[in-house]
């Protein structure tokens, strides 16, 4: 049967090629918006105004980036965003670890109901708690500081962090915990020395998810801050629109710079990111 190919011509399968071409077209369509911003950010305002936004430039114009990177307001926005994102990411994961351990390893009567209540917090529109939180922080004199944003993101992160940590801790064999307890370890040591070192992937998932969400958030800084000194980068983008009304290139550069941290995290930790998204969605 060596001459199969000549006697019975192998049936040409058009599917892989068709699918590949279809995917290429769709990918190009999907990338077009982002590509447009990238292009606009390396062009002069004049070129864009003349309708030359969507062509590949022959000269890369970096002034837009200089304008953004040397703008002291942008520094302020970035610093504020980091001051919010890092502590809130850390705190929400820490609280999720504590609660997740109890729900996974120390269940009690009614713990399932409590777990369900905590997890369902993930699903509610934030508008529902907007007014009372505004009143609370107004009463505490914390409006126009970063504290309410950090606290609220910490609290709103508890559902997803508890959910993922509980699922992960549940997969850690009980025998390990019991052995540690017999050796004289207490519950805290079981959590920090046994369970946590085995759960690094879950921590990576949560760190990427929480960092991205908090960095990208717009609503809470909009509600809780008023002065330009306290604004985060996503509000900054909107504020600077006024300053750079027709300077589309500068706006493009600013959008890209503001997205850089989350883009980098996404590209390097994509695996964790996607896992978190699907786990959070499906196990919910």
């Amino acid at each position: 049967m060596a001459d199969v190919a000549t006697s019975v011509p192998a049936r040409f399968n058009p599917w892989p090629a068709t699918v590949f071409v279809a995917l290429c077209i769709l990918a190009a369509l999907f990338l077009a918006p982002t590509a447009g911003v990238l292009l606009s950010s390396v062009k002069t305002t004049r070129a864009i105004a003349l309708g030359d936004l969507w062509s590949v430039p022959d000269r890369i114009y970096l002034e837009n980036y200089a304008e953004v990177l040397f703008n002291p307001a942008v520094h302020r926005y970035f610093l504020n965003t980091i001051l919010v994102t890092v502590p809130a990411t850390f705190a929400s994961i820490a609280l999720g670890v504590l609660a997740g351990h109890v729900f996974a390893k120390l269940p009690f009567r009614g713990s399932n109901i409590l777990f369900l209540i905590v997890v369902s917090g993930m699903f509610f529109p934030p508008q529902v708690i907007l007014v009372p939180l505004f009143r609370l922080f107004n009463g505490l004199g914390l409006i126009d500081t970063l504290w309410p944003i950090i606290l609220v993101h910490t609290a709103l992160g508890i559902p997803i962090c508890t959910l993922l940590m509980r699922n992960f801790f549940a997969a850690v064999p009980n025998a390990l915990r019991e052995a540690a307890l017999i050796e004289g370890a207490n519950e805290w040591q079981v959590l920090t020395r046994v369970s946590l070192p085995l759960s690094l992937p879950a921590l990576a998932v949560l760190a990427t998810l929480q960092f991205t969400w908090i960095w990208n958030d717009f609503l809470w800084p909009l509600i809780f801050t008023q002065s330009d000194e306290m604004r985060t980068i996503m509000i900054g983008i909107v504020n600077l629109r006024g300053q750079y009304t027709v300077a589309w290139g500068v706006q493009g550069a600013l959008s890209l710079v503001a997205s850089l941290p989350t883009l980098v995290i996404f590209l390097f930790f994509q695996r964790y990111f996607i896992k978190g998204m699907t786990m959070g969605a499906i196990k919910g």
Binding site: A99, L106, V118, I129, T154, L156, I158
Partner: peptide, 24 residues
Amino acid sequence: WRVLLLALPILVFSVLVIWPLLSS
């Protein structure tokens, strides 16, 4: 240990999510 470990997460969640939800 349940009380110790759950105290902080449940406190934060109650004060900043459950309570505002109800007072809405």
